[in-house]
């Protein structure tokens, strides 16, 4: 356990050295938060109560998606592990007496905690101040943190899978974009999934990407409480377990491949 904590700590510290880059990301997340908020305001003016949201919910949603981009790492496509697989350095990682998936999970958690505190919080705060949206109570905030943590876990599991595919793919950029497009569309990034119509909405809300942004945002908006909250936690956790499990299987296959074919 100690080694994972340390890895997470190093990741946190590594990201904290990029101060200007972090500030610059906050600027962009906030600007896009404003843009998306205004678009949603226009939509909710035409259709008040659409999808069970009111205008304030829609605005908060816009900034929540922007605040979660950092922690969930929506645009990244995969992990830095991809580069190490490309160069063959991963062989070194596989020889360490530490679990490969655990190592990178710890690294990603360190990064996510940093991104949540120094990218997410300022972005969300800017939006809430600008539009005068009140902060939810401590119980809801605590529930949100739980959901956000599960979102980070699912996000990691997905990107880990994409990274590992590089063992078998000649060029990972195509897969990267496919992963980014699916994440953006099905997570609620471009529009809340509550406005996705009919079967499209039902499918989108059941896919793992919903666990990344839509679910934690809804928890923040207080739409899930009591047993409902346990239900969405279970939804997120189920996807996390399934995807992390798939990651483990793929890791084994990759190790096997590496031993037979070499790097």
């Amino acid at each position: 356990m100690g080694v994972y904590l340390r890895v997470a700590g190093y990741a946190f510290r590594r990201y904290s050295t990029y101060r200007v880059a972090t500030a610059s990301a906050v600027v962009t997340n906030t600007v896009f938060g404003f843009l998306r908020a205004y678009i949603l305001i226009a939509l909710w003016q035409a259709r008040p109560q659409l999808g069970g949201y009111d205008v304030a919910d829609a605005v908060a949603f816009s900034f929540l998606t922007q605040a979660l981009i950092g922690p969930v790492n929506v645009f990244a496509g995969s992990l830095e592990l991809t580069g190490r697989i490309r160069t063959g350095d991963v062989a070194v990682d596989l020889h360490r007496p530490v679990d490969l998936q655990g190592w990178w999970l710890a690294d990603d958690l360190g990064r996510a905690v940093f991104a949540l505190v120094f990218r997410g919080v300022p972005t969300l705060a800017a939006g809430m101040v600008a539009f005068g949206i009140p902060l939810p109570g401590p119980a809801t905030l605590a529930a949100f943190l739980g959901s956000a943590a599960l979102a980070v876990l699912v996000g990691f599991a997905l990107r880990y899978l994409v990274s590992l595919c590089c063992f078998w793919l000649g060029d990972e950029r195509g897969l990267h974009t496919v992963s980014t497009v699916s994440t953006m569309f099905f997570s609620g990034m471009i529009l809340p999934l509550v406005v996705f119509p009919g079967p499209l909405g039902e499918v989108a809300r059941a896919l793992p990407w919903a666990a990344l942004i839509q679910v934690p945002a809804d928890v923040f908006l207080g739409r899930h409480t009591g047993t409902g909250l346990l239900g969405v936690y279970a939804f997120q956790a189920a996807w996390a377990v399934a995807l992390l499990g798939a990651g483990r299987a793929l890791t084994r296959a990759a190790r096997h491949r590496l031993m037979i074919h070499g790097g």
Binding site: Y18, V20, A21, A23, S24, A25, V27, T28, V31
Partner: peptide, 9 residues
């Protein structure tokens, strides 16, 4: 130098 993200806004 690290302002790329901000410029993309």
């Amino acid at each position: 130098v690290d302002g790329r993200e901000a410029t993309s806004s």
